[in-house]
């Protein structure tokens, strides 16, 4: 589904890349974990495959079409959904409005369908009383679940998550990872999670470690 070809990225000095000539493939119905220490370039890699930035060298293909051809804005709108460590919800909206807004922007199939959005939230444990409450009044775990619900409400086949459990306790962490697994397996989406926690990575179908500018698949 998603393929990187000789992907490289550096900030100022091309001789000191964060990673170089990365060739990876990601498939639908699978979950992937990218492990690595802080500063190794995991998030940067995620940004590139999420279409938030452009690679310095190499290309990314969605199917057989390069992201350059698709256009990053189009790609973000239709093909990828992102979950951030800081949740990145619209703080002036309720969970329901957050979902409806995302659905409208991405032209999702169920755009405008309040019942559909509400059902996703309820499935993720956001009770009826919380659905219309401002998201700032929700706990961290609840906000992260809303962020996950937002990716589910959109029709994107690729879901990328940057340290989605970074701010959560153990129970919430397990619940969130289980949810990602469900998205990958039940909804047949490709889920790529960047994490520094081996326990979280271990729950995914595939694990890669970014070390010395290269990705290594873990057994």
């Amino acid at each position: 589904m998603l393929k990187t070809k000789d992907l490289s990225y550096w900030y100022q000095d091309a001789s000191q890349p964060l990673f170089k000539d990365v060739n990876l493939e990601f498939e639908v119905g699978q979950s992937y974990a990218i492990l690595g220490h802080s500063g190794t370039g995991k998030t940067t890699f995620l940004s590139l495959i999420a279409g938030l930035d452009r690679p310095k060298d190499g290309e990314i293909f969605l199917g057989d079409r390069s992201l350059k051809k698709i256009g990053l804005t189009n790609y973000r709108r239709h093909d990828v959904a992102i979950v951030f460590q800081a949740y990145n919800l619209f703080t002036y909206m309720s969970p329901l409005d957050n979902l409806l807004t995302a659905m409208a922007i991405t032209n999702a199939e169920h755009a405008g369908d309040k019942a559909y959005a509400g059902q996703i939230l309820r499935d993720l444990g956001i009770g009826e009383d919380l659905i219309t409450r401002n998201v700032q009044h929700l706990s961290g775990g609840q906000q992260q679940r809303v962020a996950i619900a937002r990716t589910m409400a959109c029709d994107a086949k690729l879901v990328v998550a940057d340290e989605p459990t970074g701010n959560l306790d153990e129970d919430n962490t397990n619940a969130v990872i289980a949810q990602f697994q469900k998205i990958a397996h039940d909804q047949q989406k490709c889920v790529i999670i960047v994490t520094h926690e081996p326990d979280v990575a271990a729950q995914c179908d595939h694990q890669y470690r970014l070390e010395n500018k290269q990705f290594t698949q873990l057994a």
């Binding site: 999420a50 938030l52 804005t73 189009n74 790609y75 973000r76 709108r77 239709h78 992102i82 990145n88 919800l89 619209f90 703080t91 995302a102 922007i105 991405t106 959109c154």
Partner: peptide, 13 residues
């Protein structure tokens, strides 16, 4: 800025 970033990440024009 943050909100703008989120909107852009969702693919908003």
């Amino acid at each position: 800025r943050f909100e703008i970033g989120v909107l852009l990440s969702l693919g908003e024009a």
